[in-house]
Simulated scan of single mutants.
Amino acid sequence: MSDDNKNLSDDLNDMLGDAKEGAKKAADKVSEKASDLADDAKEFAGEAKEKANEFASEAKETASEFADSAKEAFNSASGDNKKILAGILGIIFGGLGVHKFILGYNKEGGILLGIWILGAVLSCVGIGLLLIWIPGVIGLIEGIIYLTKSDEEFYNTYQVGKKPWF
């Protein structure tokens, strides 16, 4: 039996050696695969970073274009709104010079408002009614002129060119 035990012990040692060798090969293969996967992951990360940079630069460019077009649209829209607002206020409240204040002509608006107030004070004397009507007619005429001009012409004449009267 001792030979059998010895043979059995040798067989077990051989099997244990084979198992260790198999485990070592498996560990080497796993290590090799992990290294390959790490390399692939680094390559994928580099590609992803490159794509993200491309996307970010495209997004910045698109955002810049959008901001420029939004500014342009806002500027043209605010010019349109000033035209319509100044025209309507010129027709309705022209005697008070409100349309002049909207366009930034404070001196001219103050002149119309002052004449209107002077006319209101002097309205108990006959001349006051004339002083109230003069700025009203001026406002009516200017309101009609504002509304009949094209957007470009209005913008160039009254906002860029700063033409204060008619």
Rank of each mutant, 00 (worst) to 15 (best):
residue 1 M to G: 12
residue 3 D to L: 09
residue 6 K to C: 02
residue 6 K to H: 13
residue 6 K to F: 12
residue 7 N to V: 15
residue 11 D to P: 05
residue 12 L to Q: 11
residue 12 L to M: 13
residue 13 N to F: 09
residue 14 D to G: 10
residue 15 M to T: 11
residue 15 M to D: 14
residue 15 M to Y: 14
residue 16 L to C: 10
residue 19 A to Q: 10
residue 19 A to G: 12
residue 20 K to P: 01
residue 20 K to Q: 14
residue 22 G to S: 12
residue 25 K to T: 06
residue 25 K to A: 05
residue 25 K to I: 05
residue 26 A to C: 11
residue 27 A to N: 15
residue 30 V to K: 14
residue 30 V to P: 01
residue 30 V to A: 15
residue 32 E to W: 07
residue 33 K to S: 09
residue 34 A to D: 11
residue 34 A to H: 12
residue 34 A to G: 11
residue 35 S to D: 11
residue 35 S to N: 11
residue 36 D to F: 07
residue 38 A to N: 12
residue 39 D to G: 14
residue 40 D to L: 14
residue 41 A to S: 15
residue 41 A to P: 10
residue 42 K to R: 09
residue 43 E to C: 05
residue 45 A to L: 07
residue 46 G to C: 02
residue 47 E to P: 00
residue 48 A to L: 12
residue 48 A to E: 08
residue 51 K to W: 06
residue 53 N to K: 10
residue 53 N to I: 07
residue 53 N to D: 13
residue 55 F to R: 09
residue 56 A to V: 13
residue 57 S to P: 03
residue 58 E to S: 08
residue 59 A to W: 06
residue 59 A to T: 09
residue 64 S to P: 01
residue 64 S to F: 09
residue 65 E to C: 01
residue 65 E to K: 04
residue 65 E to Y: 01
residue 66 F to D: 12
residue 66 F to A: 15
residue 68 D to C: 07
residue 68 D to G: 15
residue 69 S to F: 08
residue 70 A to F: 05
residue 72 E to G: 13
residue 74 F to S: 10
residue 76 S to N: 09
residue 76 S to H: 06
residue 77 A to T: 15
residue 81 N to C: 11
residue 81 N to Y: 14
residue 82 K to T: 05
residue 83 K to S: 05
residue 83 K to R: 13
residue 84 I to M: 08
residue 84 I to V: 13
residue 85 L to K: 04
residue 86 A to G: 03
residue 87 G to H: 08
residue 88 I to R: 02
residue 89 L to T: 14
residue 90 G to K: 00
residue 90 G to F: 00
residue 92 I to M: 10
residue 92 I to P: 00
residue 92 I to K: 06
residue 94 G to F: 00
residue 94 G to L: 01
residue 96 L to N: 01
residue 96 L to S: 03
residue 97 G to A: 08
residue 98 V to S: 06
residue 98 V to N: 04
residue 99 H to K: 07
residue 100 K to R: 12
residue 101 F to H: 03
residue 101 F to M: 03
residue 101 F to V: 11
residue 102 I to V: 15
residue 102 I to D: 04
residue 103 L to M: 15
residue 103 L to N: 10
residue 104 G to K: 00
residue 104 G to N: 06
residue 104 G to S: 03
residue 105 Y to K: 06
residue 105 Y to M: 05
residue 106 N to W: 07
residue 108 E to I: 06
residue 110 G to T: 13
residue 110 G to Y: 05
residue 113 L to H: 01
residue 114 G to T: 05
residue 114 G to H: 02
residue 117 I to D: 00
residue 117 I to H: 00
residue 118 L to V: 15
residue 119 G to C: 06
residue 120 A to W: 00
residue 121 V to K: 06
residue 124 C to Y: 07
residue 127 I to A: 08
residue 130 L to N: 04
residue 133 W to V: 15
residue 135 P to L: 00
residue 135 P to K: 01
residue 136 G to C: 11
residue 136 G to W: 06
residue 143 G to M: 04
residue 145 I to A: 02
residue 149 K to T: 11
residue 150 S to Q: 01
residue 151 D to F: 08
residue 152 E to H: 10
residue 152 E to D: 15
residue 152 E to I: 09
residue 153 E to I: 02
residue 153 E to K: 05
residue 155 Y to F: 10
residue 155 Y to C: 04
residue 155 Y to A: 09
residue 157 T to C: 03
residue 157 T to S: 04
residue 159 Q to A: 08
residue 159 Q to D: 07
residue 161 G to D: 02
residue 163 K to C: 02
residue 164 P to E: 03
residue 164 P to F: 03
